[in-house]
Amino acid sequence: MRKSNKPFIIGIAGGSGSGKTFFLKSFLNHFKPGEVTLVSQDDYYIDAGVMSMEENKLFNFDLPSAIDHKQFVHDISKLVHGEIVYKKEYNFNNPLAVVKTLEIKPAPVLIIEGLFILHFQDIAALLDHSIFIEAKGSVALQRRISRDDIERGYPKEDVLYKWHNHVVPAYKEYLLPYKSSCHRIVVNNDNTPEKIIELTDAICRELKLQQLNNC
């Protein structure tokens, strides 16, 4: 336990295609049940309604205004104060998706992840440790193309449009300026799970030791 009841809060930020999702899964595997909880910015997109493929292509989800910032902060505050959060899972405007209600329980370690968590200053101020995940542009783009084809059925042309007109400009304006202020920068250009697992293991050992020293 720490000196206060406040959880140890870790922020994990990374652009699209940085490999943040696999890093997170590996990171979470180093904690026991009840030790850690995750709140994701992706579950706080403002519902844009059912859109056609063309409307979806043109709509810019890569802006801070696309996030329900007020609710995001409200739910983080509840977790910090030991309260359970119930939140509908965002379905990325997929009308066929089965919407789940997420039960997010407070825990000694709280992980907040998302593109804008460093840009939202009230959230950034809560972080005890921040991790920036990055990959070079060509690698990130290929990961994005693959993901959007497999998971969301987006044509490559639409993915490229969003990449050049929405994703890259948002990354440069709302994430990259905060890179140097993060406690740790993880370069993730390889698709080698073993390297990420080894890295997350080392980070978790270090952070757990840091928490013990703060007791």
Rank of each mutant, 00 (worst) to 15 (best):
I117C: 07
F72D: 00
H81K: 12
K162C: 15
L24V: 02
A125M: 02
L160M: 11
N60G: 09
E83W: 05
H74A: 11
K162G: 10
P7C: 13
Y161R: 01
M51Q: 09
Y171I: 02
K195L: 15
D42S: 14
E54I: 09
V139L: 12
L110G: 11
K20N: 08
Y171M: 07
N191F: 02
E157M: 11
E83A: 13
D62C: 12
K3H: 01
I84N: 09
A170C: 14
F132W: 14
V73D: 00
I84A: 09
Y90R: 02
E89F: 10
V85A: 01
L115N: 06
F92P: 05
F120L: 05
L212T: 05
V80W: 00
V167C: 03
S181G: 02
L118Q: 13
E194H: 05
A124V: 04
V73E: 07
K105D: 01
K70S: 04
K87C: 00
K87S: 10
L212Y: 08
P108H: 08
I84P: 08
D75E: 12
K208W: 00
G137P: 08
S130R: 01
K25H: 03
K25L: 03
H119T: 13
L127V: 01
G137V: 02
I196F: 04
K78W: 06
H129F: 15
P64H: 03
K156G: 06
L63T: 14
